[in-house]
């Protein structure tokens, strides 16, 4: 087994961990963290794709590497937005939860009933 494949399998396992955490963990912040773990597993898959395709004296195919850089920045932006939402929710209700029951008891005239 090459080193690339090893890291690829590691990426696959991390995707599994992240997915499990995203689905089962009730706290939004932990969900965001799990999403980041999931994301890093996906990025490792790109890394394997790049490393396997090494040619022309390069250590890897630069195209997937560039894609990962783009995706890391997007994932950070997503994390920042999600965390801002969680904190705002905390400010508004004193809680940070995703459960559907009425949070904070504010005006529910129009929302999810």
């Amino acid at each position: 087994m090459t080193a690339a494949t090893l890291f690829g399998l590691c990426g696959a396992a991390l995707v599994g961990f992240g997915l499990y955490g995203l689905v089962t963990n009730p706290e939004p912040l932990r969900k965001i963290l799990a999403f980041n773990l999931l994301g890093s597993g996906v990025f490792l898959v790109f890394g394997v794709v790049s490393r396997r395709a090494a040619a022309s004296g390069l250590g890897g195919d630069p195209v997937p590497q560039a894609m990962v850089i783009t995706a890391i920045v997007v994932a950070f932006a997503a994390t920042a937005m999600a965390i801002a939402l969680v904190l705002r929710l905390l400010q508004e209700t004193g809680r940070s939860t995703l459960s559907a029951d009425n949070p904070g008891g504010t005006d529910t005239d129009r929302g999810n009933s």
């Binding site: 965001i32 997503a78 999600a82 939402l85 705002r88 929710l89 995703l98 009425n102 949070p103 929302g111």
Partner: peptide
């Protein structure tokens, strides 16, 4: 900015 729309937005985002 109401609480339940914030919740809905967070769930949508995830």
């Amino acid at each position: 900015g109401r609480a339940e729309t914030l919740q809905a937005a967070l769930r949508y985002l995830l």
